[in-house]
Design a protein around this nucleic acid. Structure first.
Lengths: 120, 120
DNA sequence: GCTTGACCTAAAGCAGCTTCAGGTCGGTAT
DNA sequence: ATACCGACCTGAAGCTGCTTTAGGTCAAGC
């Protein structure tokens, strides 16, 4: 698979994928004889997971830790599981926070509606 | 009200509030004779709204536009309403995206569980 | 009177990308 | 053949949205 296809698949930009590789989040990507990156299915899946972690607000430092665990093989699965569980928690908090903000926006919208009605 | 109280109330940091003022998101904050900022209830409410917009991903450029409308009085309320409605839409998209990512994380967690069970 | 703490400013630093400048290929239209 | 195009490459600079730092004022309490 080439980088543009992985970008399409994961929703990450081509630049972001290169940036992630440089940052050590996926240091295992192979190169063809032409020097271009070649992504396996496994690579693509990993990048999709990275994309989800990032999209849900995991900082890069934490992603880096997670990637290092991933790179050291299956023995680290319990640790990875724990990390994901913890992140899931913080994601739920984030979702609750978004709901709270949505309520604030909705109240404001209602106020605007009232003002506009009064002025008719 | 002093800045630390508004920070407490809105969840913004003191630095962020100062930064927002400098960026023209709330250019109406009064100063006491001592040169310190004095926030009215209205100011605090406005900053709370700003905080919600920011927390839900509105870019500063858009907040700036919104703030400029706010600063030019009640005649701009229909425009502000439209802006908030549009933002609400994008917030809903964002929430859906978070749900999607959560599903990916959950699938991954389940996989980990299976692997750990198999290895028992 | 001296320290402590809340405030102030301007400027530098940081995270997480994105964009730019400049270069190498392989394919295709002329 | 050659000239051009698009996808890839690298390294470095630029951007957004804060946070941190350095350095200073002032009122209050010991």
């Amino acid at each position: 698979m080439k980088i543009s296809e992985v970008a399409e698949l994961t929703g990450l930009s081509v630049s972001t994928i290169r940036f992630y590789e440089k940052s050590g989040l996926c240091p295992f990507i192979q190169r063809g004889a032409d020097g271009k990156r070649r992504f396996s299915k496994t690579d693509a899946d990993w990048l999709e997971l990275l994309a989800s972690l990032r999209a849900t607000g995991m900082p890069m430092s934490e992603m880096r830790t997670f990637a290092d665990l991933y790179a050291s093989g299956n023995a680290t699965i319990p640790k990875r599981r724990a990390a994901l569980l913890a992140h899931r928690q913080s994601l739920e908090a984030r979702q609750a926070e978004l709901e709270r903000c949505r309520a604030i926006l909705d109240r404001k919208l209602q106020k605007y509606d009232e003002i506009m009605k009064d002025q008719t």
